[in-house]
Design a protein around this nucleic acid. Structure first.
Lengths: 354, 354
DNA sequence: CTGAAAGCGCTAACAG
DNA sequence: CTGTTAGCGCTTTCAG
């Protein structure tokens, strides 16, 4: 039966955002109070577990509430308590490519879980670069008591400004010397070093680096790459440094270009597993043998890294601790402490591609 | 009975959630009003763009607000407007495995974007099965005007009960005949059929199905598998049906078991790409040639499916439309309409594994 | 132990 | 055009 009794008063607007239509009246505290024969104060106290209310009454009120699917209106309670108990989780990044990176998403999940464990609500927002200026909106509008930002991007200056004016935040990214906010991240420089060292140890003479050095994390990895190269007496070929990370077509083109270089190339260090896997795919397509002709090392150790063929050698970032560390840092800030930045140790996971 | 010692006037507790500490006073509407020399009402109107206020004044107030990083307190505004403009996004699933499934996460991202485009806030919650009973909390506590549930799991009955009592929701999952809530999903039965048909066309005689039929979606895919088998005159071997989808070790064991069957097996239809890829990996490890000895078809077409080797033949679910469809459905419900369920068409993507 | 009263920060009549 | 007034649903003194 499709046609239920039409309500008189308001004609259903059909033109976009729905207007309020026949909202079933929500039960609220006074209703419970009336039904329980007590005052709202008592209900409030009972529901919050105050020992002022005798256990028996408390339980009775609780049962009543449960049976009516009543739960305290958090918005109203927050207003009164001047507290929100909610953290904003911002995921920076442009293309839906960037956001669909399994690594980023893993961190998002971890953070959500860690906050949940503390009983804190999570307000999620993906933010494209065009709106980076509204990064603090959740805080400024009182929706969130603090922010966790995943994907530092190139926003260090802005983030510092926020920290400066007292916005509590914690960020996943690369350490910055003058950061006024806590940064949680992996040891990117060392990761880059380990990856490159591996390639060098295996005898690579022409190692490419794939990563956008505008991002501090990718830059650090690049610095690690440079350090290893220097240590092994090699001079990086600038033609083998590319910023592109996403987009199959472009990546394929780059690989093509590299293959036609006079010197050729025999190793690739990619700043993300997703990029590394795409490169492997492009190389395989052209009949280049991995690891025989070209060796590849990725970064992140996403779950699928071990399942591609050949299995990807990569630098593992300890996501398990990431979420917890971010949340801890944010709560330190909220408590007025100054948390130490956390640089999680990276680890080379050797598989088949290098 | 926990007799907690009554605290003295509250020393800074260090043992958990931080107490309020030196919060910098937030600027609020009355502050702006005072500074602008007008009343709060005027500020409210100006900031909400009311044409009652002359353009000039409006701009002046806006600038003032911006310069002070002031934004209307959404919680308070919501309370007054009796509206929250927020949707709860619930991700069901137990293991962090389940949640890290790229496919699920892609949908989460899509939904977040689609809501964002409507100017609706997103409250994210991951929900493990132990807490499935609190699935409607966000709604009951007035935090969200409606819910979007990703991962129908085996909760059809519960979801129906929620719909029954008027909780606005939209769900990603498999169509159910008696659903009182809108379900958005792909045509799982057809997807299962297409996948299996492909294997049959290629001459497979012993096709395994990997998918937990407790989940309606996986069940539908299984039914598609059965239909194809029947159509091609084959009898499914019950030993080749396994519910396990996650966990490398177990999956490897299952593959081992299958390999030692008297009949062997020459085809696998896995209900998710992640499972398919793991199987491929396990088979490669044991020296089984794909697709020569065993052919594999997955489900989802996650981005990496094309990059594994051999590239995965799979059934594509149109995630692009998923987020939008879910959001549209929810808003239909909120507007008092009864949205038609959406069954997005699935498509076989033929690559190398079959 | 319990209720009455006073707001939390904002918006929306309702007068000017 | 603008200010005054009265709450939104809840929590928390403050008195019993």
């Amino acid at each position: 039966m499709q046609m239920v009794m039409k309500k008189e008063p308001s004609p259903p607007s059909d033109d976009g955002a729905p207007k309020r239509v026949a909202k079933p009246k929500r039960v609220q505290m006074t209703d419970i109070a009336r039904l329980a024969g007590v005052s709202a104060s008592t209900v409030s106290r009972a529901l919050s577990g105050s020992t002022l209310i005798p256990e028996e009454t408390r339980q009775r009120i609780r049962d009543l509430a449960t049976s009516m699917n009543y739960q305290v209106n958090i918005g109203a309670a927050n207003l009164r308590k001047r507290d929100v108990n909610t953290v904003g989780l911002l995921v920076l990044g442009d293309s839906s490519q960037a956001i669909s990176d399994p690594f980023m998403l893993t961190i998002v999940g971890q953070v959500a879980d860690a906050l949940d464990a503390r009983g804190v609500r999570v307000l999620l927002q993906r933010l494209a670069s065009a709106r980076y200026n509204s990064i603090a909106d959740m805080y400024d509008s009182g929706q969130a008591q603090g922010l966790i930002v995943v994907g530092q991007a190139a926003l260090h200056t802005e983030l510092n400004a926020l920290a400066q004016r007292g916005v509590p935040l914690a960020v996943w990214g690369a350490q910055m010397p003058d950061a006024l906010y806590p940064i949680i991240g992996s040891d990117n420089e060392r990761g880059g070093y380990l990856a490159t060292q591996r390639l060098l140890e295996l005898g690579c003479q022409h190692i490419a680096y794939l990563g956008d050095t505008v991002h501090p994390e990718a830059l650090k990895r690049y610095q690690g790459y440079l350090r290893a190269m220097k240590e092994y007496g090699q001079t990086p070929d600038p033609r083998l440094h590319q910023s592109v990370l996403f987009g199959d077509a472009r990546l394929r083109q780059i690989v093509s270009d590299w293959l036609t270089l006079d010197t050729g190339f025999d190793g690739v260090f990619a700043a993300s597993d997703v990029a590394a896997i795409t490169v492997i795919s492009a190389l395989s397509e052209r009949g280049v043998a991995i690891p025989d002709q070209v060796k590849v090392v990725g970064y992140d150790d996403i779950p699928l890294a071990r399942h591609v063929h050949p299995a990807l050698t990569t630098v593992r970032q300890p996501t398990g601790q990431a979420g917890q560390a971010l949340v801890n840092a944010l709560f330190d800030v909220l408590a007025g402490r100054t948390p130490a930045p956390v640089e999680l140790s990276t680890e080379l996971v050797i598989r088949e591609t290098a």
